[in-house]
Amino acid sequence: MSEHLLQVENLRTEFPTRDGVVGAVDGVSFYLDPGETLGIVGESGSGKSITVLSIMGLVQRPGRIAGGRVLYKGNDLVQFSQEQLQEVRGKDLAMIFQDPMTSLNPVYRSGWQVGEPLRLHRGLDRPRSLREAVSMFRKVGMPEPEQRVQSYPHELSGGMRQRAMIAMGLTTGPSVLIADEPTTALDVTIQAQILELLKKVNAEYNTATILITHNLGVVAGMCERVMVMYAGRVVEEGPTEDVFANPSHPYTWSLLRSLPRLDRDAKEPLRALPGLPPDLTDLPSGCHFHPRCPFRIDRCVDEYPPLAAVLPAQRAACWVTQAGVDLNRAGAIVG
């Protein structure tokens, strides 16, 4: 097996609840190579965020990683102590969060916060870390960087805050940048700017990026590969173009079909995916998606399908497509 930069194997993260233990992440495996951008999509509660928090070792009690490995440059982060993880976090693996409004500490100046990883991991003193913060601000396109490092987060706009978050993640030159819905809290024009910035950063620093989003358009524009999650599991994974052209899991297929498209007849109605995401404490038998699946066969109710190759570069956990059914063609009949 070739060495990947980051390789997640059979990761399982559990949360005890009143109704029993919930596997928020249930046997997820994937890899990330240097410089590539991987998109993770799925509904709220599908385990996207918990997956990346598990990688960072940031799952808070009572949640815990119950199994699997997270290999970063060959070392298993799951086995790392908190002290060892602190060495890696913010230095090799950086993370930026959804809401830049609440993700920055309100009582410290932005420059102080952006320079903090450098003081923690590179031993820089405050004046030097501040100068670095200014130059990072310049790189992420922050207007008036010298003044902005002196600003408190509430004095910055939403877009500027997210730029500050990105600057903060990149100061130490991490090899993996995890962006958990980085544009969800921003308005549309700013979203585009931030995505441009992430793309630029990815190209310039050769930082491998994991982009979590529920916006398929973002995935199409940003990611080389995409991974679709449903109820804590990966249901489909492959190169973005292939997955979008030939969705091999009914869930992916339904998601894509629910999107408005410019090249489709404007009169054709959008198809919403019927039903609700499953309750993790009471998962359906067999394939977790079967109650909402228009292609369901008997086997789906009894057995969970493995994630297996459907097309040369594409894997999906679906009995139907693994049997050779083309969803695009079959979908026309199912309606």
Partner: peptide
């Protein structure tokens, strides 16, 4: 959220609590 951010930066839990939370 900013406490999670602080943890993601890779600082000790002590620093998370006393510098980023208590203040």
């Amino acid at each position: 959220d900013y406490v999670r951010t602080a943890r993601a930066k890779g600082m000790s839990e002590r620093r998370v609590v006393y510098v980023h939370t208590l203040r």
